[in-house]
Simulated scan of single mutants.
Amino acid sequence: LVSEVAMGHAGIVLGLEVSRLARNNADWHRLLELAAMSRTLIMDEDGIYDAASFNDRMLLGLKGTMSEAELHILKSRLQGGILNKARRGELELPLPIGFVYTPDTRVVLDPDRQIQDTVRMLFDTFREAGSACAVVRRLRSEKILFPRRIRRGIGKGDVLWSEIDHSRLLQILHNPRYAGAFAYGRTRTVYNAKLKSVQQKMPRSDWQVLIPQAHEGYISWDEFERNQSSLEQNAVGFSPGLRGRMPRQGSGLLQGRVLCGRCGARMRVHYERFEDKLRPYYVCNEAVVRHAGKTCQWARGPAIDEAVSALLLEAMAPTAIEVALAVQQEISQRVEQA
C-alpha cells in the first residue's frame, strides 16, 4: 500500500478504521506524509480526509495515536490476565520431560515408567557424583539414553531417545519444575545488537512468580537448592565465561589463555610431577566436559611458556618501554586538555 501511494498509483485509500493499517504511529505518519505528497485521499466510516490539509492531517494523526493507545491497553490487559493466572499457578506452560497435564489441567508425573525411572536415575546420579560432567560421563559410559519430547512440527508429542549432553543436563538441573515448583518469568525477551529477539535468563530474585510445592516433583525443594549451590561452585571449572578470568595457583604461565588450534576451545592446565617438580600441560578436554568424549589434544607447557616469555621480553625491550611511556604521557596531556 505504501509503495502504491508513493508512486502515485492510488487516488484514495478506503477502509474501516484506517488507522489500524499500522501498529505504531511511525508507520501511520509515514503513510500520511506520502499521501500528502502524492495528493492521495484517505476515507473511513467518518468521512474523507486530505492528508495535505493541516486540519485533516492532525485529525488523522490523533486517530492513529488513539489506535496505538488502544492496542497498548489491550496488550496490557492480556498480559495482566496471564500474570494473574500465573500467580494462582493455573497458567499452562510447556512441561519438561517427565511431566504431563491431566484432562483437568493438573500437573502429574509422566505415566510412562521408563521416562520416570530415567529422570529419577539422572537426579540420583547427580546426588552421588556431585557434578554435571560426571553425570554425562556415567550415562554415556553405560549407554543410557534420555528422552525428549518433540514440541512442534512433524511428530509433535512424540518421545525420542538420544544421548544427553552437558547443556541439556544443566537445563534439567536448573528447572524448578522437577522440585514440584511453579515458576513464571524465568526468562525475558530482549533484543541484541542485531535487533533480534533473544531469551535472557533472569536471576531468581526477578522471577515474577515462584510457588513451591505446586505439584508432585522428582526431588524436594531442599535438594533443588543444594543442587543449585553445587552447580554454582562448579561453574568456575566448567563455564567458558568464568574460566580464564581468575588465574589459579601453579607455574603455568598461560593459565586460561591458550586456545586449541583444532576446535578453538579454551585449554585447561594440568600438572604432573616430574623430577620433583610440577610440570604444566595444556590440555583441551572440552569434548570430555561437554559430551563425555575424548581429549582433543595436549601440549607440554615448559616449551610454550619459554617461547612466550622470550616474545614478551623482546616486546618489552627498553626502547619499547620508552615508546609506551611517551604514548602514555601524550594521552595524559590530551586528557588534561580535554
Rank of each mutant, 00 (worst) to 15 (best):
Val190Ser: 03
Arg257Phe: 10
Tyr282Gly: 12
Met267Ala: 12
Glu232Trp: 04
Glu232Met: 08
Pro247His: 00
Arg266Ser: 12
Ala287Glu: 14
Glu225Met: 03
Gly256Leu: 06
Ile211Leu: 15
Ile211Trp: 13
Gln249Pro: 03
Gln249Met: 07
Pro203Leu: 03
Phe274Ser: 10
Pro280Val: 01
Gly237Phe: 07
Lys294Trp: 04
Arg279Met: 09
Gly264Pro: 00
Gly250Phe: 10
Tyr191Ile: 01
Gly244Cys: 08
Tyr218Lys: 13
Leu195Met: 09
Val283Cys: 02
Pro247Trp: 01
Leu210Phe: 15
Gln249Thr: 06
Arg290Leu: 14
Arg290Ser: 12
Asp206Gly: 09
Pro212Ile: 08
Asp206Val: 08
Glu216Arg: 01
Val236Thr: 01
Pro203Thr: 02
Val258Asp: 13
Gln200Cys: 05
Ala265Met: 06
Tyr271Val: 04
Val258Tyr: 06
Ala214Ser: 14
Arg226Asn: 10
Gln233Ile: 05
His215Arg: 10
Asn192Gly: 06
Ile211Ser: 11
Lys196Trp: 07
Trp207Arg: 08
Gln255His: 12
Ile219Lys: 01
Asn192Ser: 02
Pro240Asn: 05
Ser205Arg: 15
Ser205His: 14
Gly252Tyr: 06
Gly252Lys: 01
Arg204Gln: 15
Ala214Pro: 06
Gly264His: 00
Arg273Val: 09
Ala287Gln: 15
Pro240Val: 00
Gly252Pro: 11
Leu242Ser: 03
Phe238His: 03
Ser205Val: 15
Gln213Pro: 02
Lys196Phe: 08
Leu253Trp: 05
Arg268Leu: 05
Phe238Val: 03
Trp221Ala: 09
Glu275His: 09
Gln233His: 06
Ala214Trp: 13
Gln255Thr: 01
Pro203Val: 01
Arg279Asn: 04
Val198Ile: 15
Leu231Gln: 06
Gly237Arg: 03
Val288Ile: 10
Ile219Asp: 04
Lys201Trp: 14
Val198Arg: 10
Ser220Ala: 06
Gln200Val: 13
Ser251Glu: 08
Ser205Lys: 15
Phe238Ala: 02
Gln208Val: 02
Ser220Glu: 14
Glu286Ile: 01
Val198His: 06
Met202Val: 14
Arg268Glu: 11
Gln200Asn: 07
Gly217Glu: 15
Glu232Thr: 04
Ser230Arg: 11
Pro280Leu: 00
Phe238Tyr: 06
Pro203Tyr: 04
Trp207Met: 11
His291Lys: 04
Ser229Thr: 04
Val236Ala: 12
Glu216Asn: 01
Leu259Thr: 09
Glu272Gln: 10
Tyr271Glu: 11
Leu210Gln: 08
Gly293Val: 02
Leu253Asn: 04
Val198Ala: 05
Ala214Asn: 15
Gly244Lys: 06
Ala292Met: 08
Trp207Asp: 13
Val209Lys: 07
Ala193Met: 02
Val289Ile: 14
Arg290Asp: 13
Leu253Gly: 03
Gly244Asp: 11
Trp221Tyr: 07
Val209Asn: 10
